[in-house]
Computed example of a mutant assay.
Amino acid sequence: MSGGEKEAMAEVKEWLAKTFEGAGKSVPEFEYTPRSVKHLNHLMTLSKAKDEAARLVARDFRLKSSEYRSQAARIREILENLGLAQESLPSNVVTSAQVLANVANLLNIRDTEMSSFLVAMGDISLRKTEVEEKRAEVNKESKLLLDYTRKAIARLTYLKRTLAQLEDEVAPCEAQKESWETNLQVMAAKERQYNQQCDNYKRMLDRSGYNPEVSHGILVEMAEHRKELEKKTKPILDTLRSYQDLPPDKALAALAIEDKKRQYADAEKYLEDVLQSALASSE
C-alpha cells in the first residue's frame, strides 16, 4: 500500500471514529480495501462539505435571529415609550394584530403594508387562475381518458364475446375440416385413378392408330359425304342387281358391267378427293 493510500485510510478512520462517537456508537468492524477506502473517502468529502454548509447556514440563522431580537427589543421600546405596549392595548387590538401577523406570514410578506397585501393577493389570484386552468385541462384530459377507457372496455367486451363465439365454433369447424380432409383424400384418389385411366386410354388410342387430326367435325363431314355417295351409288347397284334377271347375253352384259365399273370407280375417286380436301383444310 502506498503512502497516499495509508494517509487516506488514516483520515477515513479518524472521520469514522468522530462520526460514530458523536452518535454514541462504535465503528463496526470491516475490511479496509482500496475500493472501500476510496468510497469512504468520497463520502467523507461530501459529509465535510455538507457539514460546513450547514454550519454556515446555522451561523447565518443565528446572526439573523440576533438581529431580529435586537430589532424586536427596539420596536418594543419605541411602542412602550408611545404607550402602545402589548400589555396596554385592548385584547381585540392584540387579537387583530396577531391575525394580521398570521396573515402576513401566510402570504409570505415581510411587512403589513396594504400594498404588500394587495400584491400578495394579486399573486394568489394569478396562482388561483393558473390552478383553475390546469384543473380545467386535467378535467378535459380526464374526460378523454374516461372516454378512451369506456371505448376500451366496450372493445374488450366485444373481443371477449367474439372469443367465446369462436371457441364455441371450434368443434364444428374441426369436424367440418376433418370432413374436408376426408373428401380431399377421396378426390386425390379419384384424381390418381382418372389420370391412370386417361393414360390407359391414350395408350389404347396409340395402339389403334388414332390420329388427333381427325376431329369430330371432319368425321361428321365425311359421314355426310358418305351418305351423298351412297345416294349416288344406290341407283348403280340397283341397276346391277336388275341385270341379274336379264337373259344371258355375254356381250351386252360385259358392256353393262364395264360401264357400271367405270361409274363406281368415278364415285370412289370423288370420295377420295373429298376426304383428301377435308384433311388438307383441317391442317
Rank of each mutant, 00 (worst) to 15 (best):
W15T: 02
K18Y: 00
A23F: 12
K25P: 00
P28C: 03
T33W: 03
V37Q: 11
K38D: 13
S47C: 04
A49Q: 12
R59M: 15
D60Q: 15
R62W: 03
S66L: 09
Y68S: 10
R69K: 14
S70L: 12
Q71L: 12
R74L: 06
R74H: 04
R76I: 00
L82W: 03
L82N: 03
G83C: 09
G83H: 08
S88N: 07
S91K: 06
N92V: 05
T95L: 09
T95V: 01
L100Y: 02
T112R: 07
E113S: 14
M114Q: 08
M114I: 11
M121A: 15
D123W: 07
L126D: 13
R127T: 04
V131R: 09
V131L: 14
K134R: 10
R135Y: 07
S142T: 10
K143R: 15
T149M: 11
T149H: 10
A154N: 06
R155H: 10
L159R: 12
K160H: 13
D168N: 10
V170L: 10
A171I: 13
K177E: 06
K177S: 08
N183Y: 02
N183D: 05
L184F: 04
V186D: 08
R192K: 12
Y201L: 05
Y201M: 04
R203A: 11
E213V: 12
E213G: 04
E213D: 09
V214C: 05
H216N: 10
L219S: 08
T233N: 00
L237R: 13
Y243V: 01
P247I: 04
K250Y: 01
I257S: 06
E258M: 03
D259P: 00
Q263C: 07
D266N: 13
L271C: 07
L271H: 05
E272A: 11
V274T: 13
V274P: 02
A280C: 01
S281W: 04
E283L: 14
